[in-house]
Amino acid sequence: MAKISFILNGEEVSVEADPLKRLLDVLREDFEALGVKEGCGEGECGACSVILDGKLVNSCMVPLGAAEGADIVTPEGLRETEKGKVIVESFADTGAVQCGFCTPGMMMAAEALLEKNNNPDESEIREALSGNLCRCTGYDLIVKGVKVSAERGKDLW
């Protein structure tokens, strides 16, 4: 056990836990960040996506010890920001959400993409989402959701 601190959605937090505990479990169990989903636990699906030090990562692949001192944003944090609101609203308006299990992760991937490229074309969007699997939508409307986010959030990113 160790006390490990990091920044979670803009707030400094710390937790007493085994540094090998998965960040995914820490976020869900110790911080009730339930928007972070477990779809596979093997890095394949992206449902557990968070943004760590500005980068999209799969939180099931990250033990707490590796995240010490990191700046972590989860869907709980993103949805409170202007950018997050634009993405949520755009996804809702374009029909990008079906069962919704992949959606918070998709939002994180969309945010990570738009931070780097605020006017992505379709193939750039598809590439950026390629680690986030969705079984319901066939992706078309998610791609549209990201496009609309970029248009609506022109001045944000």
Partner: peptide, 9 residues
């Protein structure tokens, strides 16, 4: 290799 989220770590 993999996808952006994995390549970032």
């Amino acid at each position: 290799i993999a996808a952006p989220g994995i390549r970032n770590i």
